[in-house]
Design a protein around this nucleic acid. Sequence first.
DNA 1: TCTGTCACG
DNA 2: ACGTACGTGACAGAC
Length: 343
Amino acid sequence: MACILFDKLGLNAGRKGKTGYSTDTRVLRSIREEHEIVEVIEEWREYSKLLNTYLGPLPELISAADGRLHTTFNQAVASPGRLSTTNPNLQSIPIRTELGREIRSAFVAEPGFRLLSADYSQVELRILAHVSGEPKLREAFARGEDIHTATAAEVLGKDPATLTKDERNVAKMVNFGIIYGISAFGLSENLEIPREEAQAYIEAYLARFPLVQDFIQRTIERCERDGYATSLFGRRRPVPELKASNRQTRSLGERLAVNFVMQGTAADIIKKAMVAIHRRLRAEGRAARLVLQVHDELLLEVPEVELSAVKELVRAEMCGAYPLDPPLAVDIGVGDDWNEAKN
DNA sequence: TCTGTCACG
DNA sequence: ACGTACGTGACAGAC
């Protein structure tokens, strides 16, 4: 495809080397105006992905025994301590496009039951606020503010009401970056801006949230000393990369250490909630059951008659899994199918 | 078995 | 100068 687009048609190649030109989503988007074939390829990519990964294989995996689709949970694969799922991977069912959502709609509750989706709101940034103690972050959450808008207002020194969409999006990408272990290069790639500009955003952010800067620095220093990063509950992730002689590998180690505190603690918290919910459902003799976990979301199949009780049970056990400051927050939706439950 | 791509958090 | 945002799994195609 690269040969056709870039050599034969002479479209603007741009990014990447290594084994040749890239033809990924971002590249295609950037050359959409240059030739009418590009949009057709983009469309074909979306259709073939959905067809080959979901529509084709999933029906074949429905159990003959009970007519349901069962995944396999791996508890010891993902380094931060998250679960992962295989055959099929039910943690990557589409949601981001209209067409993808139609596939999600095919996941339905049994007759007499509804699907209840409960997801933690900004759990990793709340963990950051808690472990860093950064007052501005804690207060923004305590006041129930939109965290990306609050971040943009603070960093740019503007009234939240006057912020543009782009300004909020920059703050959102910076917040993602903080969770991933930020780098100027990564932020610049993501926002498609010069690295110097990205570096300036990072410096402005850290100046406005000094306790976050302290948290990052102390996390790295501790990890260098101990050889492992530690979640809020004391679970450890070894980070040998931090001792590497290669500077790039050491930088990776720094990002892994910082990311683990948030991603790993979030994984711990939702597991605590799952255990608590399961125990209470059993103790109360409910027919409702947990059917899926997707990192910050729990999906339950709930009899109609149990809905209001189970909804409050789930909210209480997820929010109460651990007393964070700011507190954990949970959004809950109910529907006949999984897509509906998330609206 | 590896690479590129793309689905999710 | 280099080359990176964190974590997964599935698929097609090349080898």
